[in-house]
């Protein structure tokens, strides 16, 4: 699935894959539920991203280690059990570290288990790859997801509250953009980032090889939940 024609990608490629070339949010457009729901502030975005990164890396490592032991017929169920285990760990950990944050993220911590990036990575990559590259790839994806959430959450917090990481940027007379902390704000900011990324990619494709034309990135890798 992931670049089968090329020679085995190096560990560095695996790590960098999720950061830019196959960024889960801006390229694969996966995991939209937490992307739109928890990105009201930068701190929420980072916590959600890091929690997902931990679950992603840990579960991909375990899936990769067990990939020859799990029968094909029950693999999806097994993946979900593995993912759910780590989600439970994260759920308790966040509750122990900060109750405020736990309440801010709400059900979305538990819903990490339903995030399609996780099952997608486990099914499409970790189940076919040795542990080290699988973990690196998952880690890169997690960081890419975190960056994506932060890009959306940062804009929404700056415009919606005039703050970044809770620090006031524009003084007490700032006029908050109410829409940015409401659900439509999430869609607007996501759409704007997607247009920026699409524009960059198009420019790059036009510059590198004009005759190749529209080179489509593999967006359908894994399952879209």
């Amino acid at each position: 699935m992931s670049t089968p024609e090329k020679k085995a990608p190096s560990n560095m490629d695996e790590l960098l894959d999720g950061l830019w070339k196959q960024n889960p949010i801006f390229v694969m457009v996966l995991g939209m539920c937490p992307t739109l729901a928890v990105t009201v502030s930068a701190i929420n975005s980072i916590s959600m991203g890091l929690a997902t990164t931990f679950v992603l890396a840990a579960s991909c490592l375990l899936v990769s280690l067990l990939r020859n032991a799990i029968p094909k017929e029950v693999r999806i169920a097994s993946f979900i059990v593995i993912i759910a285990t780590f989600v439970t760990v994260v759920d308790y950990a966040i509750q122990a570290i900060s109750l405020d944050l736990y309440e801010a993220l709400g059900a979305y911590i538990k819903l990490i288990v339903a995030n399609c990036i996780l099952l997608g990575r486990a099914e499409a990559h970790a189940a076919k790859t040795p542990p080290i590259p699988a973990t690196l790839n998952a880690f890169g994806m997690g960081i890419g997801f975190t960056i994506g959430l932060l890009a959306i959450g940062g804009v929404r917090e700056i415009l919606g509250a005039g703050k970044l990481f809770g620090i006031s940027l524009f003084g007490p007379h700032f006029q908050p953009w109410v829409v940015m902390v409401l659900p439509p704000g999430g869609f607007f900011v996501l759409a704007c980032w997607l247009i920026v990324f699409a524009w960059f990619k198009q420019n790059k494709a036009n510059k590198s090889k004009p005759q190749q034309g529209c080179h489509t990135t593999p967006t359908t890798e894994g399952s879209r939940a």
């Binding site: 006029q175 953009w177 109410v178 829409v179 940015m180 409401l182 439509p184 607007f188």
Partner: peptide, 10 residues
């Protein structure tokens, strides 16, 4: 509609 949602009181 955007500014109505963003700045409802103004």
């Amino acid at each position: 509609a955007f500014v109505q949602a963003a700045f409802p009181s103004t």
